[in-house]
């Protein structure tokens, strides 16, 4: 039932006569505008200040310190602290095999850790996301707890297990499998174990997050069109989760490069990495420019390696997804 309405359905186009007094349409008043614009300026300035606060904080406490760091490594001062000039001399003592080996070792450590985390982490994320079913949240919960437990506590825990008089040795001794305690600690093995233990969640979480949001219908469509598991994985799943995998890789690779606690506590004196050297330099003696130069140098190496890794990753992903 339509509304009862008097509607004009005949006739020419009729503009409403009601409010059309064109002469009366005056120009907008100018005086009012002036007052509002001053207030507006004040408001927009205040707003701008508020909005830029995080950025200012970031600049003051992040970028400036880093700039100073780089500057310190390039600046020569006299003993009284006077600025003399720019120089590279702080870097010279570093360009010998000892330091370069250390940097090289750190690369090795990060790469191996990243690789291990990847081959363990990706299936882990995959299984939790797709095979988890009702347990999915529970598994995620269980994954997060070690992740959010205190770092040092973890080390202590593994210490407890792997120490000369620790749990594992005692167990093996009691079971008669060994006759004298093994040295689990102070070895590359223990360092790697700990590194993977600590960094695994960093790899798993971004991948899991991406997999969880993955539309399972895409996989079904692939099977429907005749692809088997491997092909579907390679052509559908991998390309779409590639950015998450890359995030995971970077989240593991970069921090593990600067890692020194784990090697120091678990690896004893045999393993010496970038982080150990830095902490020795910085905390051992005064904040000498050489230590800072080393920090800058290793960061530079890290950034360069990042570039190459990124390239390699792009190449790999092109190969994987581009394959017919």
């Amino acid at each position: 039932m339509l509304a009862k309405r008097k509607r004009s359905i005949t006739g020419e186009i009729k503009l409403s006569e009601a409010n059309l007094n064109i002469d009366k349409l005056s120009n907008p008043t100018l005086t009012k505008k002036k007052k509002t614009s001053l207030w507006k300026i004040f408001k927009s300035e205040a707003l701008f200040t508020i909005g830029s606060t995080p950025i200012i904080w970031q600049i003051i406490f992040f970028y400036i310190p880093l700039l100073i760091l780089v500057a310190t490594s390039l600046v020569k001062t006299s003993t009284s602290g006077q600025f003399i000039g720019l120089t590279l001399e702080h870097f010279y003592p570093l360009l010998n095999t000892t330091y370069l080996t250390i940097i090289f070792n750190s690369f090795g450590l990060s790469l191996v850790t990243t690789f291990l985390c990847l081959i363990i982490g990706f299936p882990l994320a995959y299984f939790i996301a797709f095979n988890g079913g009702r347990l999915k949240n529970v598994l995620l919960f269980l994954l997060l707890i070690p992740f959010w437990t205190n770092f040092i506590l973890h080390i202590y825990a593994w210490f407890f297990v792997l120490e000369k008089h620790g749990f594992l040795n005692n167990l093996l001794l009691d079971l008669g499998l060994i006759s004298s305690p093994l040295h689990f600690l102070n070895s590359t093995f223990s360092v790697l174990v700990m590194m993977v233990y600590f960094y695994l969640p960093f790899m798993v979480l971004p991948i899991f997050s991406s997999l969880e949001r993955f539309n399972p219908l895409l996989l079904e469509a692939s099977y429907d069109l005749g692809a088997n598991h491997r092909q579907t994985l390679q052509k559908i799943l991998l390309p779409l989760t590639l950015s998450a995998i890359r995030a995971g890789i970077f989240l593991v690779y970069i921090p593990s490069f600067g890692e020194f606690v784990i090697p120091e506590l678990m690896g004893g004196d045999r393993n010496f990495f970038v982080g150990n050297v830095i902490s020795l330099f910085i905390l051992g003696e005064k904040t000498g420019p050489v230590g800072i130069a080393f920090t800058v140098l290793s960061t530079l190496c890290l950034l360069i390696s990042l570039f190459f890794i990124n390239r390699f990753f792009q190449y790999l992903s092109k190969k994987i997804t581009g394959e017919a």
Partner: peptide
């Protein structure tokens, strides 16, 4: 890396 940030 946190180490670098810390030194800075």
């Amino acid at each position: 890396p946190e180490t670098v940030l810390a030194v800075g």
